[in-house]
């Protein structure tokens, strides 16, 4: 394991260069370039805010950062899953030429998605600080391990999806549907309180959905200035452990043979 990670680290210049070029490629030939990464979540939030703040009866002041964090988070998860599916195919020409650890290709997808997540999160933070003032410092510090957790989960998910999709190419279409379902099962657009007031059964969804837990780790410190609940921390860590094990297992079983399926 450490040997594997250190060989990934030795190739850091390679995959970081790939991440940089991915970001550049995305806005090739556009006028405001990387500005789109900033503008897109803002515009999306503005639109949804106008629609849903009425329906959910929320003040924009609270609802905008709530939405923004939710959308940014979900953007990261879907990017990691969907681009993870393509990661080995994308790196195929390198894989066919050079025996490098395969996990660097999902890592490329994860870091690209992570960059956009950080940008979206920064916008949300600035918004919150402007409107509500600087929050509770220890709570904000808790975001650091959260980001590490998120990165590890993202990378592992990307590895799992990449392997699954190479072996069984219907995976990418299947997971698209699953992600769509999860989008509504996770409190991204709607505030959980509102759903709970309609029916207490929704608690089941919010307490056992790992993505809802992760989202709490992000939202609680930033929006409420509170440390996340122990349950959320524990559940998220357990989920991280699970996907890491799954990713390691997938690599262990299929890494060598992957080239035969590409």
């Amino acid at each position: 394991m450490t040997g594997y990670l250190s060989s990934i680290w030795r190739l850091r210049h390679f995959w970081m260069a790939l991440v940089r070029i991915d970001l550049r490629k995305r806005y090739r030939g556009t006028v405001i370039g990387i500005g789109w990464s900033l503008l897109q979540p803002i515009a999306m939030t503005a639109v949804l805010c106008l629609v849903f703040s009425r329906i959910f009866g929320q003040s924009i002041r609270e609802f905008a950062p709530y939405l923004l964090t939710g959308l940014t988070f979900w953007g990261f998860i879907t990017a990691v899953v969907m681009q993870g599916c393509q990661s080995f195919f994308q790196g195929e020409s390198y894989i066919r030429q050079h025996p490098a650890p395969l996990a660097i290709y999902p890592l490329r997808a994860t870091l690209g998605a992570g960059f956009h997540f950080i940008l979206g999160f920064a916008i949300a933070s600035v918004f919150v600080w402007c409107v509500n003032g600087f929050g509770n410092l220890p709570a904000l510090v808790s975001l650091v391990p959260t980001f590490v957790l998120l990165f590890v989960i993202g990378w592992s998910l990307a590895v799992c999806m990449g392997v699954a999709n190479v072996l069984f190419q219907d995976s990418q279409h299947l997971i698209g549907i699953v992600m769509q379902m999860l989008f509504y099962l996770t409190p991204i657009l709607y505030p959980p309180k509102m759903m709970l007031s309609k029916s207490p059964h929704f608690a089941l969804i919010f307490n056992y959905n790992p993505f809802a837990m992760l989202l709490e780790l992000i939202r609680k410190p930033l929006l409420d200035g509170e440390l996340p609940s122990l349950w959320a921390i524990g559940a998220s860590s357990l989920f991280a452990l699970l996907v890491v094990c799954a990713a390691m297992l997938a690599l262990r079983c299929f890494e060598k043979r992957m080239i035969f399926y590409l």
Binding site: I21, R28, S93, R96, Q97
Partner: peptide, 12 residues
């Protein structure tokens, strides 16, 4: 190794 050497460029 030198094979398929025209492959594996980032075309952009």
């Amino acid at each position: 190794a030198l094979f398929d050497i025209a492959l594996g460029f980032e075309t952009d």
